[in-house]
Design a binder for these strands. Structure first.
Length: 582
DNA sequence: CTGGGGATGGGGCCC
DNA sequence: CGGGCCCCATCCCCA
């Protein structure tokens, strides 16, 4: 007995799910476009993908080999078996680019189709360069042997210049060039042993290197294992030849990958979390959810990333973030992408700058942001402070409401453009001035809050601001600190501009660590797992806090009523109940 | 329906 | 840079 249309129907369903982002568990970054897909499907289509998706939730493809338009076709092909021609190129160009991409991605069927088609039309494939590489690509070419953290892909070490030569080569030629030796050896071995050279955001800045070395992974306590390998956006399988050629994160924390626990590979990734959680509640990779929760994020998913034009960091104190680490914007600024916070991830609405969003979206976003107004001043800065941290959205076809051909959207103003070039040109028209906005106003409120908080803290424990030896005093707010570094750190909180932008949402931070932590929430990186229930957390502290749920420990006691609490913050909240007039 | 408690997420910031 | 703890906001459950 056999169901005749089973395979077809299944594929249809999967493609529909892809269109909705449902259960998508991998993000593919191509130039400035992001595509969601299912690992299983990709893995079934190509051994190259298979090796990549094994450990990565975020795959960055070599823009020398594939551009967004081509990859869209490729993805469509994978999910449908049909090849839809691109309107952006001539047929011949298109198939040539497709052939290059297919070869690169090791989609042999597609490559064969393209070859056949090209042969029929008498065209010659143009290996290696489906499109003009952007500045990012060019920079990468220059630096490809210098850094371990560049583009993911087997051709990372393939000299693109050879593909630029005018000797058109058929697929075989390309693949010959991409022989195992060239493809899979090169500098990767060196990289593998090159521990921490590119482990962090700030690395590689001057070279204009993509921030693929951004290490958003986090060491997990021994009990919780680590999700580093799975979560590090650019780590790659070490086992497969393909991955051996691709860059690895090479951060110190990557070393932890050898100690992964069962289920770690299923760590939440942004897509999975966002899409699944929005429908099914929290995602528990390792087990059933401890409790059913379904938070509604207000923001729809978008896929902003920094354009290649944002490569230059003009401020040494700023992380060079080139928009390669990408992921869905979480549901709301504090809602997060995680097991407990289901971002609505429906691709229905453009993510625009935070201020616009605040103005236009529902109350809780706004109230929250206003509550943190001192920290939100520059949230709407696609670019700012001399650092063009533009965040663009590439709208994946079929994933967004009709916007015509204007798939490239400027985050700060929401305008759409048909090409990244036009978007780039447009972005230049945003002046620095308009990006320096509202900073005042929040600080006082905050300080009032802090006073209140300190009052409450006094009830539950010592305030963090003692009056011991603190010779270093802030000239703005007269807080004092033990050492100058801390003072300097604090003084940044008074700056009008925040030096550390999130390259996904553009939000600015005063501390790099906060920004990195924030990025983790974008990417759903939750290295700290509860052994009891499998719930995962972004921070160790949260796990510690959470463990009291299981232990029943309630260390915080209300001095007024004797009520006991598992968390200090809930005690504080409780104390408010005692103190508030109502 | 409402308020309180439990639990969680994100950001700020000090150490 | 990470840990830790503060904050606020939010959701869910339950009385």
């Amino acid at each position: 007995m056999e169901l005749p249309n089973h395979a077809k129907q299944l594929l249809l369903q999967l493609n529909q799910q892809r269109a909705k982002g449902f259960l998508c568990d991998v993000i593919i970054v191509v130039e400035n476009a992001l595509f969601r897909a299912h690992k299983n499907i990709l893995a079934a289509s190509s051994i190259y993908f298979k090796s990549l998706v094994l450990h990565d939730n975020l795959i960055n493809l070599d823009t020398e080999m594939v551009n967004p338009s081509v990859f869209r076709q490729v993805l469509d092909f994978i999910y449908t078996g049909k090849l839809l021609s691109s309107s952006e190129m001539s047929n011949e160009q298109n198939f040539s680019a497709l052939l290059t991409a297919a070869s690169y991605l090791q989609l042999h069927d597609l490559a064969a189709l393209c070859k056949k088609r090209l042969k029929r039309s008498g065209g010659k494939p143009l290996p290696g360069k489906p499109s003009t590489p952007g500045p990012l690509s060019r920079l990468r070419l220059n630096n490809q042997h210098l850094s371990s953290s560049t583009t993911t892909g087997p051709n990372n070490h393939y000299p693109p210049t050879s593909s630029d030569t005018d000797q058109p080569q058929p697929d075989e030629g390309l693949r010959d060039k991409l022989s195992d030796d060239e493809m899979f050896v090169g500098s990767s071995g060196k990289n593998a042993g090159n521990g921490s050279s590119n482990g962090n955001l700030s690395s590689g800045g001057s070279a204009g290197e993509p921030d693929l070395g951004l290490d958003l992974s986090k060491k997990s306590p021994p009990s919780a294992g680590t999700a580093t390998d799975a979560l590090s956006p650019h780590s790659n399988s070490q086992e497969s030849p393909q991955s051996a050629s691709v860059s690895t994160t090479n951060s110190a924390s990557l070393d932890d990958s050898s100690a992964t626990l069962p289920g770690v590979d299923n760590c939440l990734d942004p897509v999975e979390v966002s899409s699944k959680a929005s429908e099914d509640g929290p995602l528990q990779p390792d087990g059933p959810p401890p409790q059913k929760r379904s938070r509604q994020g207000s923001r729809k998913n978008e896929w902003p990333r920094r354009e290649a034009s944002g490569l230059k960091s003009e401020d040494n104190d700023r992380p060079l973030v080139n928009g390669v680490i990408v992921g869905p914007k979480d549901g709301r600024s504090s809602g997060g992408v995680g097991a407990g916070s289901a971002s609505s991830f429906t691709s229905e609405q453009s993510y625009q700058c935070k201020d616009e969003e605040d103005a236009g979206e529902n109350g809780h976003d706004h109230s929250e942001d206003s509550a943190q107004s001192d920290g939100e001043s520059t949230g709407c800065r696609g670019n700012g402070g001399g650092h063009r941290s533009t965040n663009y959205v590439y709208r994946q076809e079929g994933f967004e409401p009709a916007l015509g051909d204007n798939l490239y959207v400027c985050i700060p103003c929401g305008k759409g453009f048909p090409s990244s070039e036009q978007l780039n040109a447009h972005v230049e028209t945003h002046t620095e001035d308009e990006l320096f906005i509202k900073e005042e106003g929040g600080t006082l409120v905050k300080e009032e809050d802090e006073e209140e908080a300190e009052d409450l803290s006094a009830t539950v424990g010592p305030s963090s601001f003692g009056s011991e030896t603190r010779p270093f005093k802030c000239t703005v707010c007269s807080k004092s600190y033990k050492d100058p570094a801390t003072l300097r750190q604090h003084e940044k909180s008074h700056w009008l501009t925040r030096p550390f932008p999130c390259n996904i949402c553009g939000k600015m931070f005063t501390q790099r660590g906060t920004m990195t932590r924030h990025m983790r929430s974008h990417l759903g990186l939750k290295p700290f797992a509860c052994e009891e229930c499998g719930m995962r957390f972004t921070r160790q502290y949260r796990l510690t806090e959470h463990m009291r749920v299981h232990s029943g420990e309630k260390p915080y006691e209300c001095q007024l009523c004797g009520g006991k609490f598992t968390q200090q913050r809930n005690l504080i909240s409780h104390l408010r109940m005692h103190t508030s007039p109502s």
